[in-house]
Amino acid sequence: MNVKAAVVDAVGEPLRIRELVLDEPRANEVQVRMAATGVCHTDAVLRDGWIPTTMPIVLGHEGAGIVERVGSAVTHLQPGDHVVLSVNSCGTCRSCLSGHPAYCLEIYAHNFAGGRPDGSSAFTDSDGSRVGSHFFGQSSFAEVVNASVRSVVKIPEDFPLELAGPLGCGIQTGAGSVINVLRPAPGGSFVVFGAGAVGLSALLAAVAGRVGTIIAVDVVDSRLELATELGATHVVNGAREDAVARIQEITGGGVQTALDTTGNARVFRQMIDALAVAGHAGALGASAAGSEGVIDLPTALSRGIRVTWIVEGDAVPQLFIPELIAMYRAGHFPFDRLVKTYPFTDIDTAFADSESGDVLKPVVVF
């Protein structure tokens, strides 16, 4: 099958849309015609070489579409099903079997290596040369993909597919970090550093959980204004205020739960310093090599704080994504406020708007 796809040919190069050949789905794969795909920071991280992979490659890992074919080993999905594509995993390691597929022991091979675990790729160029596939088990910057079955999440047919895609990674990551990992108490306190799509998804989860004091820290006033509209009780502009001092003032001595979505070492240190005694912090922002932060270890020990590094919100996508959809439909999780759609042909503009901060969650529509 010939399909149009956005290809990265080498590290740091822009995405170029061209026609590729898609192979037949394997026994454990699902062929999906894409309706929409979110643009995520992790796509840019791979494009720019922060995480090594095989190039050229088709990226995209927040896909949503309709099943066209299923492999011979797939029994719970059928053509016509509406699906979201999420993180891939092996399904058989200790992490997968204990309900933590985001920490799969074979996570690189199944998500970042640029092909199937056996080394094959679903895509070839017009001259027969290999083009990498199966980024997050899907490579959804293509009209049709052969996705690993463990990446596929069935959703209600009446849910808008242009909204569904970001649930596969960014929205799931932010919300899951709060709901599955940090679990701030109703009436308790929570701060998120970084009011982008992931940070505001975390904020929405805290609002849904009836957390009493919800603080957003960013350096862009428009994002802080939106955070207030979405339910933040306080906002702090870190470029104009001492974020640690302000958080301690708001909370009366320190915040109980905190999340850093920026990957910035200085911000990470601020988060640690803003914690209350026995506070719990989460970190999930991707960082370039050499971004190591510094923690005052003796002081941290005496305060009894916890720090958890979080991948994909520590979620089981097949369970958690339907939960987020139910929350949205009940009016408790309005993540649609973060989304802006673009035609697939404008994918470079979507990337640029995401990186400039002008748009929180771009979604390209096929």
Rank of each mutant, 00 (worst) to 15 (best):
N2R: 13
A5W: 02
V7E: 03
D9L: 01
G12L: 01
R16L: 09
E19W: 01
L20D: 00
L22F: 03
N28A: 13
N28C: 06
E29W: 05
V32H: 05
T37L: 00
G38A: 07
V39E: 06
H41F: 11
T42Q: 06
V45Y: 02
L46D: 01
R47W: 10
D48G: 08
P52K: 06
V58K: 03
I66P: 11
R69S: 11
P79A: 13
G80Q: 15
V87E: 04
N88A: 10
N88P: 07
S89N: 11
G91A: 14
G91K: 12
G99P: 10
G99I: 12
L105F: 12
L105Y: 08
E106G: 08
I107D: 08
S120E: 00
S120K: 05
A122C: 06
D125H: 04
D127F: 03
V131K: 00
H134L: 09
F136P: 13
E143H: 08
V145G: 01
V145E: 06
R150Q: 14
R150Y: 08
E157G: 11
F159P: 08
P160N: 09
L161V: 09
Q172S: 12
T173I: 12
A175T: 06
V178I: 15
I179F: 05
P186T: 08
G187S: 06
S189D: 10
F190A: 02
F190D: 06
F193L: 13
F193E: 03
F193T: 02
G194F: 12
A195W: 02
G199K: 02
G199D: 02
S201N: 11
L203S: 00
L204E: 05
L204R: 00
V207A: 05
V211W: 02
V219Q: 02
D221I: 01
D221M: 04
E225D: 14
A227I: 09
G231Y: 04
A232R: 01
A239K: 15
V244K: 02
A245F: 10
R246N: 12
I250Q: 11
I250C: 09
L259A: 12
T261A: 05
T262G: 08
R266G: 15
V267Y: 00
Q270D: 14
D273Q: 13
D273Y: 04
A283D: 09
S287V: 10
A289F: 07
S291K: 14
E292P: 07
D296S: 12
D296C: 12
T299C: 01
L301S: 14
G304R: 04
T308W: 04
T308S: 13
I310H: 05
I310V: 15
V311Q: 13
F320N: 04
I321N: 07
E323M: 08
M327W: 12
Y328C: 04
R329G: 07
R329K: 08
G331S: 07
F333C: 10
R337E: 04
R337Q: 15
V339F: 01
Y342M: 03
P343M: 01
P343Q: 00
D346G: 04
I347C: 05
V359S: 10
F366A: 01
